[in-house]
Each structure stands twice: as structure tokens, then as C-alpha cells.
Amino acid sequence: MLVDALTDLDRRRDWQSAASALTGAAAAAPEAAAELNRALTSLTTTDTADDAGSERDRPARQRIDHLVRLLTARTVTHRPEALRQERTAAARILAVHRDFVPQAAALLTHAVDLDAAADPLHSSLVRLARLHDGRPVLAARTAQTLATRITYAHRSGTGDTDTLLTVVARLGATGDAAEGLFAAALTAAGGARTAWTGPWRTQLRLLRQHPVPDVRDAAHAEVTAHE
């Protein structure tokens, strides 16, 4: 019933309530998570309907955007791990459509387990970076979201700084633009978190020599000691 209300584009009154109920149920029941994915798949196939019309504009896309906002908002309002698998599965569905890569990136950004060990955390960030090939603006936005999550994790008393430093060093060493932007944003968050101890200052210096100008700019924008 909820999927029908959400995917029937002729129903314009109750689809937001259905979206909220479906994402809420997905955290508690695998069956509901599967139905959420079915709804997303259905909506991606009907996305081009009513493109830039005078009465309606991409109604399916607007419903997908709403679902993504609900799924990412629950990172803060609920336990971060509660919908990690559901976000990852939804991101896979959206990532195969070029016009939904930003939504897929948002979901994967909020699916990253910041408490993971260095190797799995690094791998998840590399996978996330691959979505940003040729999308520097999106990469910068994702990097900022990652930094915000790191900051929030610090306030919540979670996340290991030494692990983060290891991962940042790996990301910054590849020369990749998206990985470099992630490294710069995470360095800013980690540096602030530790009052810019020596290893974080060293990492910032390295990023200021990165081959990608946007990464160098981001690193230079950070200040370890104010005049």
C-alpha cells in the first residue's frame, strides 16, 4: 500500500506520508527495506515523465529526492548504523543512473561507518570517491558532509583520531581529486579535533602540495594557528 501511494504519480496528496512510513519501517523490517528498494527502482524508470512542465516537473525525481532526504536525515535522528545497509542498497540502485549520482553519493556518505578500522573505512571512502569522477562540485559538497559527520562523531564521543589520520594519509597520497578533497576536509576536522597536533599539521602540509589545485586550495584555506 505504501509503495503504491509513493510510486503512483497520479496520487499527489499522500505520497509524502507514505515515504515517511516506508523509510521508518525499513529500519525495523527487512521486508520493508526490500519494498523501499522496489519503490526506488520503480521511480527511476518513470523519472522523465512531465519534464519541466507548466503543471508538474519530474514528479518521480521529487519523490526520490524526498526519500533520500529522509534516509540521510535519520543518520542524526537515529543511530547511524540503523539504516546503513538500506542506504547502501538504495545508493546502488540510484548510482546506475547518471542523473541520480548525487543522490547515491549522499546516501553512501551517510552510510560510511566512521567507527570502522582503517582498511574498511578507507575502502568505503574510495568507493564513494569513484562516484565523483568528473564532478568536482559534488566532490567538494560530499567532502564537507564527511567533515560534518566527523565533527558530530567527535561530539558524540565516537570515532578514532589515529585511524582517521591513517585513512586521510592514504586518500591524500593517490593524487585523485575526489580522494584529495575528502582528505582535505577530514584533515580540517581531525586537526580541529586534536588542536592541530604535529601529525595533522604534517598532513596539511602534504595536501598543500597536492597535484589537484582544488585540493591545494582547500588545504590552504585551513589555518593551524591564527594571527
Rank of each mutant, 00 (worst) to 15 (best):
R141W: 13
A192S: 15
A116W: 04
H226T: 07
A140I: 06
P80I: 09
A106G: 03
R193H: 12
D162V: 13
R135Q: 14
G180D: 05
D217W: 05
D57E: 10
A105K: 09
A221K: 08
L164Y: 00
L146N: 04
L2W: 07
R98C: 00
Q103D: 15
R98E: 13
R208E: 13
T224N: 00
E35R: 14
A21L: 12
G172V: 11
E55T: 05
P136F: 09
D14K: 01
A27E: 10
T174Q: 07
A105G: 11
D51P: 00
G134Q: 09
R84F: 03
L181P: 00
T41A: 09
R216C: 14
E227R: 15
Y152E: 14
T145I: 06
N37W: 03
L165F: 05
L94P: 00
A116T: 08
R208Q: 15
T187F: 04
R193I: 07
P59D: 03
G24E: 06
L70A: 01
S42R: 14
G198Y: 08
R201M: 12
A60P: 03
R98V: 11
R58H: 13
A185D: 06
L131V: 08
T23E: 04
Q62W: 05
Q209I: 00
R141Y: 09
G172Q: 09
R92Q: 11
Q103H: 15
D10L: 12
L207C: 04
A188R: 14
A178Q: 09
A27C: 05
D57Q: 09
P199M: 09
N37E: 15
A183I: 13
F100I: 02
Q62G: 13
Q203N: 00
E35F: 00
T197E: 14
S54P: 06
A34F: 02
I150A: 14
A82M: 07
L107Q: 01
D47G: 00
T44M: 04
R193L: 04
T187I: 13
A91W: 11
R38W: 03
R58S: 15
H97D: 12
L138K: 01
R205P: 01
D115A: 11
R79M: 07
R98Y: 03
R155M: 09
G159T: 08
L164E: 06
A89Y: 02
L36E: 06
D214C: 00
A192F: 07
A139N: 09
A116Q: 00
A111T: 12
P199V: 07
T163N: 10
A90E: 04
D8C: 07
A5K: 02
E55L: 10
T46C: 12
D4R: 10
A105T: 08
H122C: 06
L71E: 03
S123V: 08
V126L: 09
T161G: 08
D10N: 14
A153I: 06
N37P: 00
L6D: 01
L94D: 01
A33D: 10
L107G: 02
P211W: 01
L181K: 05
R201L: 11
L43T: 03
A29D: 15
L171I: 05
E35G: 05
Q16Y: 07
I150Y: 01
G159R: 08
A189V: 07
L83N: 04
T88L: 15
A147C: 11
P80H: 07
L2C: 08
L146P: 04
A32R: 03
W196A: 11
T194S: 13
